[in-house]
Design a protein around this nucleic acid. Structure first.
Length: 288
DNA sequence: ATCCAGGACCACT
DNA sequence: AGTGGTCATGGA
């Protein structure tokens, strides 16, 4: 089952490898992964993206099929130029946008996003990917790919809620193991309804996420931005802090967390999260 | 070896 | 409010 998404200004490589979703594998000229429980391969083609999936993507025989699940993930219907036009017109952002043209945000499954970023604290991206691979291989639902190989979805909260902390530690989670387990328990028990959070005001949704052990402002904002669709969420990690310091406060003697926070909330506009991802990717892919 | 990684949390100031 | 130590683990 193949579908072509006509979309301009969409850099698949930057989008899938910029550290927002840790679950894509580069194979040849494309990327393969599991979205909404389906294996899918994405390839850049002139004027858009070609997607190959398997199984019942089509509702009616002979139709183009229902690819809404992938449209939602890729956000191909989003007007990138309109978003970029809301950015403040300053040299750092102009430079970052020019360097990362076509970088997009995707919309991840909220639970997968939360689980992924709980695993992310003080880990390098390669290690986060390894942790998630181990979790998926051990407890995730198997998914068949076009070549017959078996992939694995990330395990749902209901599954991880029944896994012991020791077994999680065996997947190299370290001190994050009890955090992931606690989050899985609360989501599985219905005490935390992630989908419902997407319809709440930003501060309320953020507070609900921060109530989870092991989830502070940064991880909460990652989930708000990458999983729940809050465009103003602005995760500040070491790379973004570095970028802000170097690009906006080059000669500040000391930059307090409070000041960084206030700047991030006031300077970047309604799509601050998008600006954040450009700054993050720009700073991270550029050697010192 | 030493430092650091898409942090959070706790104990002190 | 701001700083420092601690928590696992492995890459560079």
């Amino acid at each position: 089952m193949i579908h072509r998404f006509p979309v301009a200004d969409y850099d698949l490589a930057a989008t899938l490898e910029c550290g927002q979703d840790f679950r894509w594998d580069r194979r040849g000229g494309g990327w393969e992964g599991v979205v909404s429980g389906r294996w899918v391969r994405l390839e850049p083609v002139p004027g858009g993206i070609r997607a190959t999936a398997l199984g019942d993507c089509g509702r009616a025989p002979g139709s183009d099929g229902d690819w809404e699940w992938l449209t939602r993930y890729l956000r191909t219907d989003e007007d990138l130029a309109a978003i970029l036009s809301t950015f403040p017109d300053d040299p750092p952002l102009r430079e970052a946008v020019a360097a990362c043209r076509g970088l997009r945000l995707v919309r991840q499954d909220p639970w997968e996003c939360l689980a992924g970023f709980i695993c992310s604290s003080t880990k390098q991206i390669v290690q986060i990917r390894q942790i998630l691979r181990l979790l998926a291989a051990r407890w995730g639902k198997p998914v068949r790919a076009a070549d017959g190989s078996v992939w694995h979805a990330l395990p749902r909260a209901e599954v991880l809620a029944g896994v012991s902390e020791g077994d999680l530690r065996a997947c190299k989670l370290g001190f994050r193991a009890p955090y992931l387990r606690a989050a899985a328990e609360r989501v599985a028990a219905g005490h935390l309804d992630l989908d419902a959070l997407a319809r709440r005001p930003l501060p309320e949704a953020r507070a609900a996420l921060e109530a989870l052990p092991g989830v502070g402002r940064k991880i909460a904002d990652c989930v708000l931005l990458f999983g729940l669709g809050f465009p103003a969420a602005f995760p500040v990690d070491v790379w973004v802090r570095r970028a802000l310091r170097e690009l906006y406060f080059p000669r500040a003697r000391r930059l307090t967390p409070r000041r960084i926070l206030r700047f991030s909330e006031t300077h970047f506009g309604p799509h601050a999260g998008y600006a954040q991802q450009y700054l993050f990717h720009y700073r991270r892919t550029r050697p010192d």
